[in-house]
Computed example of a mutant assay.
Amino acid sequence: MMLIPVVAILVADPRAPDFPEQVPGLMEACLADAVATNSVTETDDSHKYICGGDAAARLWAFLERAKIKSYEQDTPDEGRWLGRDFPLGACFKQIRRADGTAGGKGLSCTIWVPRPAVGTADKS
């Protein structure tokens, strides 16, 4: 009977949902990490959540597997970074330090949650 082994394989290794169905769960883990590490700030128009560690690594790996096109950014103080965007955010991986040496373990993801700009809140 071949049916039992096939069913066992399907149950033991369920196929991960396709893009973008995994994004909400990955973003939730990133938001939780940012809150836990007190990495939440405000910009003029958003709340900025920055996660690192396992949450960022899983989100980066997912974006890579989904073949999200990357781009490079140079920052004078922090070197060269590879970035990948997703809805409401982006992940950044250091590929070269400012001194020209190979990138370190720098990996973070940022989620921007929009907020009303100061003075523009609905007063009704």
Rank of each mutant, 00 (worst) to 15 (best):
V6Y: 14
I68S: 08
E28C: 01
G52R: 07
G119I: 04
G106K: 07
A55P: 00
P87M: 13
D33P: 05
M27H: 01
T110L: 12
G79P: 00
A55G: 08
R80H: 10
Y71R: 14
D44Y: 04
M1D: 10
D99I: 00
H47F: 09
K67V: 09
L10P: 06
V35N: 11
A32C: 12
A61L: 13
A16R: 08
P5A: 07
E72K: 14
A66F: 07
I50K: 05
T75F: 05
A55R: 01
G53W: 08
I68T: 15
P76T: 03
A29R: 04
R115C: 09
A57T: 02
G25W: 02
A29N: 12
V23I: 07
E21L: 10
Y49Q: 09
K48R: 15
G53I: 04
V113H: 04
I68L: 11
M27Q: 13
V23A: 09
A16C: 04
D45P: 02
A32V: 09
T43I: 02
G106C: 07
R97D: 02
E28W: 03
A66G: 10
H47K: 12
S46Q: 03
Q73P: 12
K69R: 13
D33S: 12
C91T: 09
M27T: 03
V35E: 13
I68V: 15
G103N: 00
M2D: 14
E64M: 07
A55E: 00
Y49W: 03
C109H: 06
Y49C: 04
K105Y: 01
D85K: 04
P14Q: 05
H47D: 10
G53P: 04
L31H: 11
M2E: 05
K93V: 11
D33N: 15
A8L: 12
G119A: 10
A121I: 07
N38W: 14
E21Y: 13
V7G: 14
R58K: 15
S46I: 03
E78P: 00
L107T: 11
G89T: 04
G104I: 06
S108Q: 13
A90M: 10
T41K: 11
K123Q: 10
D18G: 12
E21S: 15
Q73N: 13
A121F: 05
E64V: 07
E21K: 15
D99T: 01
C51W: 01
P17Y: 10
W81C: 06
A61P: 04
P5T: 14
V7W: 01
W112S: 05
L59H: 03
G103I: 01
Y71C: 08
D77V: 01
C91Y: 01
Q73H: 09
R96Y: 00
A32W: 08
C51K: 00
A8F: 07
P87V: 13
L107D: 02
P24G: 08
G104P: 00
T37F: 11
T37N: 15
A29W: 00
K123S: 09
